[in-house]
Design a binder for these strands. Structure first.
Lengths: 122, 122
DNA sequence: TATTGACTTAAAGCAAACTCTAAGTGATAT
DNA sequence: ATATCACTTAGAGTTTGCTTTAAGTCAATA
């Protein structure tokens, strides 16, 4: 699979895909003799994972580290589990913060709909 | 209330509070004759709002616009409602993305705990 | 009196995550 | 043949949201 197809499938730009590769989040993707990238099914799976985690705001530095450990094999299992748990905690906090803001927006919109706006409170 | 007290109460830095003010998200906060800021209850309410929305990732440009409209009075009610609905939609998408990543992390950690790691999938 | 600490300003600096530019290669369409 | 299009690279530039710096004022304490 060529870079533009992958980009289209995931809603990323080709620049972003090459950037992720340079940062060690995916690949290195193998290239044909013309130097053009050819993404394998395994590459695609990594991109799926990275996209999901990035969409949730996990940092590239974390993904980089996790993937490096993954590639180092079984001896890093304990450390990998620990950093996943750490990221889960960070994510949980963000989810809660966002839920709070979401509820507040809902409440506020409801006030707008009912024409009972409180002049002083945002 | 003085800037350092406000900062402490909200877990923000004084720099951030001054930055928010410069950007038009709060205030302008009134100052004593010594030039020192004195935050009112209304200022505090705005900071609460801004902090909640920022923690959810809403952009400063949006908050700026919303607050400007708010200060322009009732003639902007319709527009304000519209941009709140727009932001709610963006937020909902992010919440869903984050929930997906959270579920995936949970699933993955569960595999680590059960020692049934899939070598190929992240 | 000197120094410590909280405050003030404008402006420069920084980190993260892209995004764009410039210059080039190679295959295909007119 | 020449133009168009997708690809390649290294490196510079951009955006967002702070954060730091430099230089200063003022009040209180050693």
């Amino acid at each position: 699979m060529q870079i533009s197809e992958v980009a289209k499938e995931f809603g990323l730009t080709t620049d972003t895909l090459r950037y992720y590769e340079k940062e060690g989040l995916i690949g290195p993707v193998s290239k044909g003799e013309n130097g053009i990238r050819n993404y394998t099914e395994d590459d695609i799976k990594r991109i799926q994972f990275v996209k999901c985690m990035r969409a949730a705001g996990l940092e590239i530095s974390f993904l980089k580290k996790y993937i490096r450990l993954f590639d180092e094999g079984d001896k890093t299992i304990k450390e990998r589990r620990e950093i996943l748990v750490e990221q889960r905690k960070i994510l949980k906090k963000k989810l809660d913060d966002m839920q709070e803001a979401y509820d507040r927006l809902n409440y506020k919109i409801d006030l707008y709909d009912k024409n009972i706006l409180d002049k002083s409170l945002m």
